[in-house]
Simulated assay, not measured.
Amino acid sequence: MSPSAVPAAHGSTWNTIAPDEAGFDEARLAEAVAFAQAHDSPWPKSLFYPDGRYVGNVEWNESGPWSEIVGPVRGRGGPAGLVLKGGRIVAEWGDTARTDMTFSIAKSYLSVLAGLAVQDGLIADLDEPVGKSVPGPFFESARNAPITWRHLLQQSSEWQGEIFGKSDQVDHNRQIGPGADNSRKGQKRELNAPGSFYEYNDVRVNLLGYCLLQRFRRPLPDVLRARIMEPIGASSDWEWQGYETSFVEIDGQRMQSVPGGGHWGGGLFIGARDHARFGLLMAQGGAWGGRSLLSADWIAQMVAPSPTLSNYGFLWWLNRGPSAKAGVPASAYWALGAGTNVILVDPENDLVAVLRWIDGASFDPFLGKLYGAMA
């Protein structure tokens, strides 16, 4: 991708490209967009059901001692998104500037922050036990002492404990995706050796965020803003909110640790256009306007299949294995948040797509229509 394809800073005009010039059939691309617009997420706009239950608690069949909402929640907008080809907008719909909650897409932002920590030498070795560089009680037990940074990034740590009032047990037996059965979610199970078992566990991801905060010794939103979002020309509207229980003191300063999603409120509040810039940075191998912001080597590691789940890298989903999307290159990958919110990165086709609030069952059909529109 040429440097000229990098969009100017937020507030300036983002270059567009006609569908036929970008290699799309105009009518079929319009059909894909109309499909996304017509298939809104089933979640209530307030993110609370009429009986007062938070969507996350309903989505994940969660109740009991760890289900309290401890971070801010804001109502959502409607379906929105955009498609970039060569860094230029080929399609856009809905309110792409609205700073909505984005749920587990925040995990993929944490992965990028981990890459910056590696570049800065704050993480010397991904296979080193985290407890060697992160003080405190979280890795002192025999159970947790062997856990490495790689384990946390691949969601295979099997860490046991409580952080910010949430126990790892809350996500035991959790399933995600189509056909997920969460009837046993939260029921305590026997833990496996670190690195041997994959489990999607928000408490352990929140632990990773805390550990990165301990290494950077400054709030992660500040690091992200200075190192990534400002250089790529993102807006100033996005926020990354933590919990009322997640304040810590570092070097005499009170800071808030931020979570990897909106499971209990909080998380990343951001617009689709800012997501698109972030995805474009990934598609360009971490470079922006001739300047390397994130190591291309880190991105390669980030999207390598995990030994415990072939379609998962470092907090990014990969187009691999039985769940691979038909017609989408194996090299494509995406950030995914409940609701459904997606940043699709396809370096092979120089393509980035952002989806906000599409019905989860409509994600695969949308991709079929999008890729079917490419000549």
Results as ranks from 00 to 15, higher is better:
Asp181His: 07
Ser183Lys: 03
Arg184Pro: 13
Arg184Trp: 14
Gln187Val: 15
Arg189Ile: 15
Arg189Ser: 14
Glu190Phe: 13
Glu190His: 10
Leu191Phe: 12
Asn192Pro: 05
Ala193Glu: 15
Pro194Val: 13
Pro194Met: 10
Pro194Phe: 12
Ser196Asn: 04
Phe197Ser: 12
Tyr198Lys: 04
Glu199Ala: 13
Glu199Asn: 13
Tyr200Gly: 05
Val203Pro: 12
Arg204Met: 15
Val205Cys: 10
Asn206Ser: 12
Asn206Trp: 01
Leu207Ala: 08
Gly209Met: 01
Tyr210Ile: 01
Tyr210Pro: 00
Leu212Trp: 01
Leu212Gln: 00
Leu213Cys: 00
Leu213His: 04
Gln214Gly: 04
Arg215His: 03
Arg215Phe: 02
Arg215Pro: 02
Arg215Thr: 04
Arg215Cys: 05
Phe216Ser: 09
Arg217Cys: 05
Arg217Phe: 08
Arg218Thr: 13
Pro219Gln: 14
Pro219Lys: 11
Pro219Asn: 09
Leu220Ile: 06
Leu220Arg: 07
Leu220Thr: 06
Asp222Gln: 15
Asp222Ser: 14
Asp222Cys: 01
Val223Asp: 09
Leu224Pro: 02
Leu224Val: 03
Ala226Pro: 04
Arg227Cys: 08
Ile228Cys: 11
Ile232Asn: 09
Gly233Ile: 01
Gly233Met: 00
Gly233His: 02
Ser235His: 01
Ser235Ala: 00
Ser235Phe: 01
Ser236Asn: 09
Ser236Val: 00
Ser236Glu: 13
Asp237Lys: 04
Trp238Asp: 05
Glu239Met: 08
Gln241Glu: 12
Gln241Cys: 04
Gln241Phe: 03
Gly242Cys: 02
Gly242Ser: 01
Tyr243Ser: 15
Glu244Asp: 15
Thr245Asn: 09
Ser246Arg: 00
Glu249Lys: 13
Ile250Thr: 03
Asp251Ala: 13
Gly252Tyr: 06
Gly252Ala: 04
Gln253Ala: 14
Arg254Tyr: 06
Met255Cys: 06
Met255Leu: 15
Gln256Arg: 14
Gln256Tyr: 11
Gln256Trp: 10
Val258Lys: 05
Gly260Asp: 03
Gly261Arg: 06
Gly261Glu: 05
Gly261Lys: 06
Gly261Val: 07
Gly262Tyr: 02
Trp264Met: 12
Trp264Val: 14
Trp264Gln: 13
Gly267Gln: 07
Gly267Cys: 04
Leu268Phe: 15
Phe269Met: 07
Ile270Cys: 14
Ala272Lys: 05
Ala272Leu: 04
Arg273Asn: 09
Arg273Lys: 13
Arg273Ala: 09
His275Lys: 11
His275Arg: 05
His275Asn: 10
Ala276Asn: 02
Arg277Asp: 10
Arg277Gly: 10
Arg277His: 10
Phe278Asn: 05
Phe278Ser: 12
Leu280Ile: 03
Leu281Ile: 11
Met282Ala: 13
Ala283Asp: 12
Ala283Trp: 07
Gln284Lys: 11
Gly285Asn: 07
Gly285Ile: 10
Gly285Val: 10
Gly285Phe: 10
Gly290Trp: 05
Arg291Leu: 03
Arg291Gln: 15
Ser292Cys: 00
Ser292Pro: 00
Leu293Trp: 07
Leu293Asn: 03
Leu293Glu: 08
